[in-house]
């Protein structure tokens, strides 16, 4: 575990030195432009516009980082052969994998927190004050972070047994499917054979469910998110990430480095 921590901190350092956090500049510019634009339109919908735009930007930027850096976490080290010296040290392969995962999640947490802070500042600016109902925005940000952790785990898993390009395609594909899991579950039973409907039901529980992480509508209108959903999403992410990372470790531990 301690060794995984060492790997995680180094992964974070790599992200910082590779200027990953520079995306924050882009986010800042976007939010400044938005707040100026909102001033021009009618009062009353600033909350909706700013929060929707802010959360979308946080989500999209986070997803881009998760997918591309998530896939590169291990494949880059294999490609550049930086792993050779490391794996000869007293460190298990799963510890290395967990550390890489933790390092990117740490990076995403710092990055997302900075963006959330920016969003709150803009809200403060356009509304001249923040109320208790605005905590829902923080819950929205938290859910985005959970979602990103899941995406990183998936990207890591795919990168352990296929090429980086395919891993990116699989991760993005699974993310998109994961947005519509509820629809899959609710497909009209009449149109399918029983076997088929059993299969889609199974599939819908197997696939990652990203739908529950979207509280944009609630956040935009300042409605509270039920505490049960917060708990459910947290547990779901923990369990799902554990399963995916275990699978990744199982694949990676048997893999021959080239």
């Amino acid at each position: 575990m301690r060794r995984a921590g060492v790997v995680a901190l180094n992964t974070f350092r790599e992200a910082v030195r590779d200027r990953v956090l520079y995306n924050l500049v882009f986010f800042a510019l976007l939010m400044i432009a938005a707040s100026v634009a909102v001033g021009q339109i009618s009062i009353g919908i600033e909350q909706t516009v700013i929060v929707s735009l802010g959360l979308s930007a946080i989500s999209v930027i986070g997803l881009l980082i998760s997918v591309f850096l998530g896939v590169a976490l291990v494949s880059k080290e294999m490609d550049k052969r930086t792993l050779y010296a490391l794996l000869a040290k007293p460190v298990r392969r799963w510890e290395f994998l967990l550390g890489k995962f933790g390092g990117l999640v740490l990076t995403l947490t710092v990055n997302t927190a900075a963006m959330a802070l920016g969003l709150l500042l803009v809200m403060l600016y356009v509304k001249h004050g923040l109320g208790g109902s605005d905590t829902v925005v923080l819950v929205g940000v938290y859910f985005i972070l959970l979602k990103l952790a899941l995406v990183v785990a998936l990207a890591l898993l795919f990168s352990c047994f296929t090429t980086p390009l395919l891993a990116i395609l699989f991760t993005v594909g699974l993310y998109i499917v994961g947005l519509y899991v509820q629809e899959l579950r609710n497909l009209p039973v009449q149109v399918m054979s029983p076997a088929m409907s059993a299969f889609t039901k199974w599939l819908s529980y197997l696939l990652p469910n990203f739908e529950n992480f979207n509280v944009m509508a609630m956040a935009a209108h300042g409605r509270a998110v039920p505490g049960a959903l917060v708990l459910q999403n947290t547990l779901y992410t923990l369990v799902y990430c554990t399963i995916v990372l275990t699978a990744a470790a199982a694949v990676f531990s048997r893999r021959n480095l080239k």
Binding site: N10, R13, K80, R81, Y84, A85, A88
Partner: peptide, 11 residues
């Protein structure tokens, strides 16, 4: 262990 043609984190 010294790997063949070693390469390390370049950052």
């Amino acid at each position: 262990y010294l790997p063949e043609q070693p390469y390390f984190y370049d950052y």
